[in-house]
Design a protein around this nucleic acid. Structure first.
Length: 489
RNA sequence: GCCGCGUUCGUCUAGGGGUUUAGGACGCCGCCCUUUCACGGCGGUAACACGGGUUCAAAUCCCGUACGCGGUACCA
């Protein structure tokens, strides 16, 4: 089995592109096959200089490795279409020679004119096909001599696929079963552009054949052009690979997950935006894997390796799937909790240092340990400022509601008790606190709430025992004094 | 318009003729746990697009309709 991911460097790697890459990768690894990365850079006008680099970087971030491709080598290279031009020209010539394709000299104006001529309410998008090609300037309508003259004069031309009407083009899609198209509805696709570069359709089938690709796994947007590809394979006498068209990822409201549409709804479309937002790669991969595929049992959290073991094309769905950021966030929480604090601390230290001057990785790791179950994103720990510095203000609503007349007095007394405490540990603190409230004959809340306010300034958060251990005895004392001075009832 | 693909809780989905009072997950709501907030546990909310047919029996098979999505470029 040989599969490929064939992105076009016309923009940064799209979230849908990453899923396509992932499914290809999973299938290859599952079956001990080869995963090829091929860069389809045949559109000069839309070329984006650093797009290829972004694609490579994002795949690496996600842990999706490939066996052949730019930077990985392989016997079927080069893996950039811009470096394979001669081969496409050769095939285009062969297609023309065998009568499966022809030369067309029409410029944009005459193309527009033809479309305007035929445009009507019942035919809003006239095609260059068996119904119109006879009106045009091409090697079918002109004699050989006229064609030679144009060629000699250097007239620009394209090569078009000659699609004969009255045929049924059928293929079996691994996701959808048998799909059939009538050739009457297929247009004479341009195979070679006038700039001498191939279109996707030509380059794709030539490369898939030359690179011995056995399974073509791509987005559903390609389904309508598959008959053209089948026709091309047949014209060359090549075997048609197994086709699999993945359901499209839709925006949360059901429309296309286009850049504009999605970002309006707060859904990033570039993988790099997820990286920048701080998502765990495992979470994005996990989420994407389940977007259009399911294992058939109730497991939801999968590592990449587990996905490899569980993945099966038969369990890929057929209908479009809506992107749900909340579910992605849930996966991020799951993965975050499974990561060692030390690892997260190492990652977050630079930001913690910048924001709070925190240079102590161990301290940060300890703070993360306390906050882990409250975080959606790793950086959320830094939003709990009180972990790093004294609160500058105290939640007014909570204070108004729960700060009593005696709170200051209680706190002051407790501060005194803490000053005598010898074992500054969670257990020691808990013991001290309990004996304090017992002696004072007050409820737990009468001390806990003021203490929490004094130490954190907010009503919710991690265990106070662990917080006090984290910030230490001195800081605890300072914060208590500060609160007594500042919170007046 | 035409061509193609699709349609089970708000979302991702299981189920593929009787096992179904249609299961799970996210979200939302409630209860429990708890110093708080979370986590966790328990419970609740909520779906077979519609109409015909086939069949003893249909969410499941067939046809139609509706709706959604994709395609309809010298873009991929």
């Amino acid at each position: 089995m040989r599969v490929r991911f064939a992105p076009s460097p016309t923009g940064y790697l799209h979230i849908g592109g990453l899923r396509t890459a992932l499914y290809n990768y999973l299938l290859a690894r599952r079956h001990g096959g080869v995963f090829v990365l091929r860069i389809e850079d045949t559109d000069q006008t839309r070329f984006v200089a650093d797009a290829e680099q972004d694609i490579l970087a994002m795949m690496a971030w996600a842990g999706i490795t490939y066996d052949e491709g730019p930077g990985a080598g392989g016997e079927y290279g080069p893996y950039r279409q811009s470096e394979r031009s001669d081969r496409y020209a050769e095939i285009a010539d062969a297609l023309v020679a065998s009568g499966h394709a022809y030369l067309a000299f029409d410029d944009n104006e005459s193309l527009d004119a033809m479309r305007n001529r035929h445009r009507s309410e019942s035919n809003p998008n006239p095609r260059y096909d068996h119904t119109t090609r006879e009106e045009m300037r091409n090697s079918l309508t002109m004699d050989g001599e006229a064609v030679s003259q144009l060629l000699d004069a250097g007239t620009p031309y394209v090569v078009r696929l000659l699609v004969k009407p009255g045929k049924t083009v059928a293929f079996t899609d691994a996701v959808r079963g048998e799909v059939r198209f009538e050739s009457d509805t297929v247009d004479d696709q341009v195979l070679m552009k006038s700039d001498g570069l191939p279109t996707y359709h030509l380059a794709n089938i030539v490369d898939d054949h030359d690179m011995a690709i056995t399974h073509v796994i791509r987005g559903e947007e390609w389904l309508p052009s598959t008959p053209k590809h089948v026709l091309l394979y047949e014209a060359m006498g090549w075997e048609v690979p197994t086709m699999a068209h993945l359901p499209l990822i839709l925006s949360p409201t059901g429309g296309k997950l286009s850049k504009r549409n999605a970002e309006k709804q707060g859904i990033p479309v570039s993988v790099s935006q997820y990286v920048d937002a701080g998502y765990e790669p495992e979470a994005l991969v996990n989420f994407l894997a389940l977007l259009g595929w399911n294992p058939g049992d109730e497991q939801e959290v999968f590592s990449l390796g587990e996905l490899v073991d569980a993945f099966a094309m038969e369990r890929v769905g057929q209908s479009g799937v809506q992107f749900d950021l909340q579910k992605l966030n849930w996966f991020n929480e799951q993965w975050l909790r499974s990561k060692p604090e030390a690892e997260l601390a190492r990652r977050l230290l630079p930001v913690a240092n910048e924001r709070f001057g925190c240079e102590d990785e161990k301290y940060l790791a300890q703070a993360i340990g306390m906050m882990k179950e409250r975080m959606t994103m790793a950086a959320d720990v830094l939003d709990a400022e009180y972990l790093f510095e004294a609160p500058t203000d105290y939640d007014e609503k909570a204070v108004a509601k729960r700060w009593k007349e005696k709170s200051s007095e209680t706190l002051a007394a407790f501060a005194g008790a803490l000053a005598d405490l010898e074992t500054w540990t969670e257990d020691g603190l808990e013991e001290a606190l309990k004996s304090f409230i017992a002696a004072k004959e007050i409820g737990m809340g009468a001390l806990m709430f003021p203490l929490r306010m004094a130490l954190s300034g907010v009503g919710g958060g991690p265990s106070l025992y662990s917080l006090m251990v984290l910030i230490g005895a001195d800081v605890t004392q300072t914060r208590i004094q500060r609160a007594i001075e500042r919170i007046n009832v």
